[in-house]
Design a binder for these strands. Structure first.
Length: 942
RNA sequence: GCCCAGAUGGUGGAAUUGGUAGACACGAGGGACUUAAAAUCCCUUGGCCAGUGAUGGCCGUACGGGUUCGAUUCCCGUUCCGGGCACCA
């Protein structure tokens, strides 16, 4: 009996031995070069892992193992993003503490992950919800509170420096409350009264990236705009650095582009506009507009303010008051979603007029919802000829439109392009205001020239300033939830004050109920022991709150999901340190993440926040690199492949795919686990649901063929494939290989269990190379044949290159080819067969270990040195090339491998096969590319 | 609307970046072994046409053009699918 490939035994054995031997434990070792591989840590959901989750983990594990075999000291940790809404909502429903369900889910995840054979160092596991972890989340928050962003230095500085500056300037107020309010405008973590995304259904505010098309990402509930006092992070201060940093990192162009869009830098000018409250009135004040099209100043025919702008109240005249109020009421009644979808032109005249500083013209000021309060200054100059939105507005309210570009047709639509020659600027020479003897004239310039000329003019005559705006907003950092990090903040006479750093962490208090309180306080309002005793430096019962006694209320908000996930990669470097987020030694050694693998859905969330957070910690000197993730690989989504059966309407009879068109049928999803190669297991189907127990079938060729479709993997489509089941039936190594074989890691692709046999067969063939028919090792110490050496070295070359390029599907193909070749060559040479497990180890570590051990290899195959290929084995003595005539391959022939192009042409044209193509022809041109092709261009003789 | 990425057999996907398109795998068909099944092994498998046959010819990488001796690859235009941004002035 040949020795069977018993994957179950092998994999269990090695899981045990790896654990016993602590094979994957890593420590800082300055003598060796480091390599940091990281996966985006998962949120442990109740549903467990499906086959799509491990895709990225497998890809990064292969890379980590490969790097380790190359001699790098590889950090490859794993942990859990443990705070999150599902656990909280489950707690609200069942009363079960979210920690309990979260930990149970984590155990389940761990069990599933362990089966796949990852090289994670579990000693470094982190969970964002444990106090020893969120200690440092709270600590970072306090550091942000105590820092401001210095625009000159473009970096965070201690807030004391700012206070010092205010004192020197004499602008430092005496009153404590006033001091606090002043500093709030500068702190990187600050309490701000801002418009927030409020989701009534979830009872919490949400960050911009948590809202898509006016509804919450989680749950899809409507979101409205509300002014609330919230903790915010001054992410916008880092806009330019976040933008510049993108050029220094190895991420996909599309994700960098997404971040550039999200940051939304635009260069423009801010211009002061004086206004009057009637057509002939005196100047009553001024406001500032922002424009990127300074060149269009001569085409301004009205101004528009955002309805939420503070200016609205100032510019509204008594006559227009009623109309304006009514309009504001209308705007308020519209949800964010309605405003986004419905772009009908609405607006109201304020009664006031703005004075164009360039032309001196007075133009009406409108209030309209198409201008956003949060961007620029919340006020614009409208140039209907060259902006489609202004155009629509002007048409609707019958306002003048002045074209400013030569030849632009504006009868039907505006001309928005920034191309062309400027005209009508000014229309007549006297139609411009003189400043210090200079008048602005843009006629004849290109638009680009006109923009810079106007900017220069505006700046020179102090009419405004050049300004860069960013769309990136500050992140709202508080949530009205229970299951999150509590803020280490108390309110001393209404002034937010940090709990001393030495007293951290402030642990999440126990509560009876996880819902908001009856008085509308967040869930932490239910906590009894939740007041800060300043003197005794401890948390006490909130009944004791007493300003005189120095006992104050603690913040009731908690931190959002991204708080814990923003710096976890630093914590992995030194996870048990209770003195610092990370020791200087560990941070200096591990630096930053060399390879980060995860989904692209985090492009505008986690991947912006961590970059921001890391830049802040970099400014503090805690993080050693400006960018946290050097290379990013976004693994594609694994979609489900659903199967369908076709029920004839109003019967319990099911008809096979090929015959379904003859009947009136309803397609019904059927569990993919009872279908193999699209053939339905009839008994399993009957047993699947009582409804189908008595089902009849119309078969074709005695089989029931199911239909299929590619859909999202979800329970309701019965297309979820569980990795445990694959491991059970085929083994972890097969699962690992197949997940990679499916296609490029970055690409989204459907999961189709049907193809898995190919990978399973490959492993069985590999296994069979090593054993004779009696089950003994079939190895000889013979010199390997030239063929076998060529096969081996070709493989080494290919696999090494493919791993570096993250192209795992092609390297697995190469393995398949090599094993087939070796098997045909009947190779039994120890030299060759001992190298094979070393090469396959990153992909299929269990079988590699087993073979390595059987061959008497030293230690673990995980540490076996990655082999180098040698060109000498790959050298060809002759090469077969196609010979082309006029670009068409006519025949193949052998050439000496070292033939020069001239020799190749000589050989090709004198070959017997060439005769019939050369007959009656003249050679026009010859091209010979060594290792490629020989091409002879001919034409009929004249 | 703007920006980005893509389209290759029945299926997943290869193609050394301009050099014999379809590697590898699945599925399908045929065969060997077997009482049978599983497992294993061998052959065929992009389409069309000619030939008893070895074989030969033509067409083929979403569509239409272009550059080139030669294009899946480069350029221009079109269609379709995916992703991001979106009254951002």
């Amino acid at each position: 009996m040949a020795k069977e490939y018993n994957y179950r035994e092998i994999e269990q054995k090695w899981h045990r031995l790896w654990a016993e031997r602590q094979t994957y434990k890593v420590t800082e070792d300055e003598r060796r070069e480091k390599f940091y591989v990281l996966n985006m840590f998962p949120y442990p959901s109740g549903a467990g892992l499906h086959v799509g989750h491990p895709l990225g983990y497998i890809a990064s594990d292969i890379y980590a193992r490969y790097k380790r075999q190359q001699g790098f000291n590889v950090l490859n940790p794993m942990g859990y993003d443990a705070y999150g809404l599902p656990a909280e909502q489950y707690a609200i429903k069942t009363g079960q503490h979210p920690e309990k369900t979260t930990f149970a889910n984590i155990d389940r995840y761990r069990e599933q992950l362990d089966k796949i054979g990852f090289s994670f160092d579990w000693d470094r596991e982190v969970r964002t919800c444990t106090p020893d972890y969120y200690h440092w989340t709270q600590w970072a928050f306090q550091k942000m509170f105590n820092s401001y962003f210095d625009e000159e230095l473009q970096k965070a500085q201690p807030i004391e420096k700012l206070i010092e500056k205010f004192k020197q300037e004499g602008t430092w107020p005496a009153d404590e409350k006033a001091q606090s309010d002043l500093l709030m405008n500068y702190r990187i973590a600050f309490l701000g009264e801002t418009m927030v995304n409020w989701c009534p259904k979830l009872g919490t505010v949400l960050a911009n990236d948590e809202v898509v098309e006016g509804v919450s990402v989680r749950g899809g509930y409507p979101v409205e705009q509300k002014k609330m006092r919230q903790w915010c992070l001054r992410v916008s201060a880092y806009s330019q650095r976040l933008l510049d940093g993108l050029d220094t990192i190895d991420w996909s162009e599309s994700i960098k582009e997404t971040q550039r869009n999200w940051i939304g830098r635009s260069e423009g000018a801010e211009i002061e506009i004086p206004y009057t409250l009637s057509k002939d009135g005196d100047e009553a004040g001024s406001f500032t507009i922002f424009t990127t099209r300074a060149d269009t100043m001569f085409g301004v025919t009205f101004f528009v303010l955002a309805p939420e702008s503070e200016l609205v109240d100032k510019v509204t005249t008594p006559e227009q008051r009623a109309a304006v109020d009514e309009y504001l009421k209308y705007v308020k009644s519209r949800t964010e979603r309605e405003r986004m979808i419905d772009h009908t032109v609405t607006g109201v005249f304020s009664g006031a007029y703005g004075i164009n500083p360039i032309t001196g013209d007075k133009c009406p000021i409108f209030i309209a919802e198409y201008v956003l309060a949060g961007y620029g200054t919340g006020a614009i100059m409208a140039v209907p000829a060259h902006d489609s939105r202004d155009y629509a507005f002007a048409k609707h309210f019958d306002l003048p439109i002045i074209p400013l570009v030569e030849g632009a047709d504006i009868s039907e639509e505006s001309y928005d392009a920034k191309e062309g020659i400027v005209c009508n600027s000014p229309i007549t020479p006297d139609k411009s205001v003189e400043y210090d003897g200079e008048r602005l004239c843009l006629n004849g310039l290109t638009i680009k020239e006109a923009i810079s000329e106007t900017k220069r003019f505006v700046k020179a005559h102090n009419l405004g300033r050049v300004k860069v705006n960013y769309r990136l907003r500050d992140a709202i950092f508080s949530r009205q939830r229970y299951w999150g990090e509590p803020f280490p903040v108390y309110y001393k006479k209404g002034i937010p004050t940090m709990i001393p750093e030495e007293c951290l962490p402030i642990e999440l208090p126990q509560v009876e109920k996880f819902l908001p309180t009856e008085t509308g306080e967040p869930p932490l309002g239910n906590a009894q022991i939740w007041a800060w005793d300043e003197k005794n430096r401890k948390i006490v019962d909130k009944k004791l709150i007493d300003e005189a006694a120095g006992i104050y209320p603690i913040e009731l908000y908690t931190m959002p999901g991204f708080a814990g996930s923003s710096a976890y990669y630093l914590r992995y470097m030194d996870p048990h340190n209770d003195q610092a987020l990370v020791s200087d030694r560990a941070a200096s050694y591990w630096q930053n993440v060399d390879l980060y693998v995860g989904g692209s859905e985090h492009a505008t969330g986690h991947l912006i926040y961590s970059r921001f957070w890391n830049k802040f910690l970099f400014d503090l000197g805690v993080s050693k690199k400006e960018e946290p993730f050097k290379k990013l690989v976004n693994q594609g989504m694994i979609q489900g492949r659903s199967n369908f059966v076709y029920r004839i309407k109003e019967t319990n009879t099911f008809v096979s795919l090929g015959l379904k068109d003859k009947y009136d049928v309803t397609p019904i999803h059927v569990d993919v686990n009872i279908v193999k190669n699209d053939i339905l297991d009839l008994d399993a189907f009957k047993a699947w649901s009582p409804e189908y127990a008595t089902a009849d079938f119309v078969l074709e060729d005695g089989k029931y063929v199911c239909g299929w479709a590619i859909e999202k993997m979800s329970k309701s489509m019965y297309n979820v494939v569980n990795p445990d089941m694959i491991v059970e039936n085929y083994g972890a190594d097969t699962l690992r290989l197949y997940e990679m074989f499916l296609g490029p890691v970055e690409q989204s692709k459907p999961w189709d269990t049907n193809g898995i046999d190919g990978c399973f067969r490959f492993l069985k063939k590999l296994w069979a190379l090593y054993w004779d028919k009696d089950g003994n090792l079939a190895l000889t110490d013979d010199e390997p044949s030239a063929d076998s050496l060529k096969t081996l070295h070709k493989l080494i070359k290919k696999v090494t290159g493919d791993i570096e390029a993250f192209s795992y599907n092609t390297s697995i193909s190469a393995f398949m080819v090599a094993v087939n070749e070796l098997s045909q060559q009947k190779c039994s040479s120890r030299t060759v067969l001992q190298t094979l497990p070393v090469l396959i180890a990153p992909f299929a570590p269990h079988i590699a270990e087993e073979l390595w051990e059987a061959l008497g290899g030293e230690g673990s195959v995980c540490d076996a040195k990655w082999p180098q290929y040698e060109e000498k084995y790959l050298v060809e003595t002759s090469v077969k090339l196609g010979v082309q005539f006029n670009g068409k391959v006519r025949f193949d022939m052998l050439f000496p491998a070292d033939a020069t192009p001239e020799q190749m042409i000589e050989l090709a044209t004198s070959a017997p096969e060439a005769a019939k193509y050369l007959e009656g022809m003249d050679i026009v041109k010859t091209i010979a590319i060594p290792k490629r092709i020989v091409n002879i261009v001919v034409k009929p003789k004249a």
